[in-house]
């Protein structure tokens, strides 16, 4: 790891100012960034830890709206979010990872196999930053690509609590990330299906399944597997296998919601 300066501001405004420096980078829980720095895949001159910012903490539900601070850890989401999202968070990595890793860090990183992106798409979440609010549909822009600008901080996430939802994760047994993960939600805007781990374009909505499930919400209504074109193919699974898993996991999620 190359050396860097370390700063820990206590407000979002101070963090934004600290991140204005060239080569400064935000540090959430460090569960992705520290391993990245060790491999010298990034070499910021300054890390700005967001862990001391009280206004980015906390998970609360009021009037059917779930609000999660960008600095909330996976363990905090597992403890306090609505049940389907809590269950997703409770199954990220292992307990020590969940005690450090944050939802803001996961969404900023947008790993193609990360769990949260599928949920944000299915739940029609709003990603709140220091500068603006971004609809999930506009936020994810491909593997490791997001709508965030340089130095922009995810301060929170806002979600209308769904009528029903379920996440099915097919774990890659070594990394414990999702080989494929599918989040199905029944929302005020209809059924939404978010898929992670499968596509080379990163997390996406499976709109054919959404249309079918809006007609009839049952596992039998889930269409045949989506096309394998553009699906990830690697030593853990072929594109066709991943496409197949998308349909299977969607069925399981629908069956679980009932």
């Amino acid at each position: 790891m190359y050396n860097f300066e370390f700063e820990q501001p206590s407000t979002v405004a101070e963090a934004v100012a600290a991140l204005a420096d060239e080569d400064a980078q935000a540090l959430g829980g460090g569960q992705t960034l520290i391993p990245t720095l060790k491999q010298r895949l990034a070499s910021p001159s300054k890390l700005v830890s967001l862990a001391g910012i009280a206004e980015m903490k906390g998970v609360s539900i009021a009037d059917g709206v779930l609000t999660i601070g960008g600095g909330a850890t996976h363990a905090e989401v597992a403890a306090d979010a609505c049940a389907p999202l809590a269950a997703l968070a409770a199954n990220i990595g292992d307990p020590a990872v969940r005690n450090r890793g944050t939802i803001g860090g996961s969404l900023a990183n947008n790993d193609p196999a990360a769990c949260y992106p599928s949920a944000m798409l299915a739940l029609n979440a709003t990603i709140v930053t220091n500068a603006r609010e971004i609809a999930a549909d506009d936020y994810f822009q491909g593997m490791f690509e997001t709508a965030l600008d340089e130095g922009e901080i995810i301060t929170g996430v806002r979600i209308n609590v769904p009528d029903g939802a379920n996440y099915q994760k097919f774990e890659q047994p070594a990394s414990r990330f999702a080989l494929v993960g599918v989040f199905v939600a029944k929302t005020a805007e209809g059924v939404r299906v978010g898929v992670t781990g499968a596509s080379e374009e990163g997390a996406f909505r499976w709109t054919e399944a959404e249309a079918a499930l809006n007609g009839s919400f049952s596992a039998d209504a889930v269409p045949a597997a989506p096309s394998a074109d553009g699906m990830i193919s690697d030593l853990h699974g072929t594109a066709a296998y991943r496409a197949h898993l998308v349909a299977v996991l969607t069925k399981r999620a629908v069956a679980a919601i009932g």
Partner: peptide
């Protein structure tokens, strides 16, 4: 694994400065 403020963390994936 050590405990920081009572919670299990991987001390190889936390900066000493974060534990100040």
């Amino acid at each position: 694994v050590v405990h920081v403020n009572g919670e299990a963390v991987k001390s190889c994936t936390m900066l000493a400065a974060e534990a100040d």
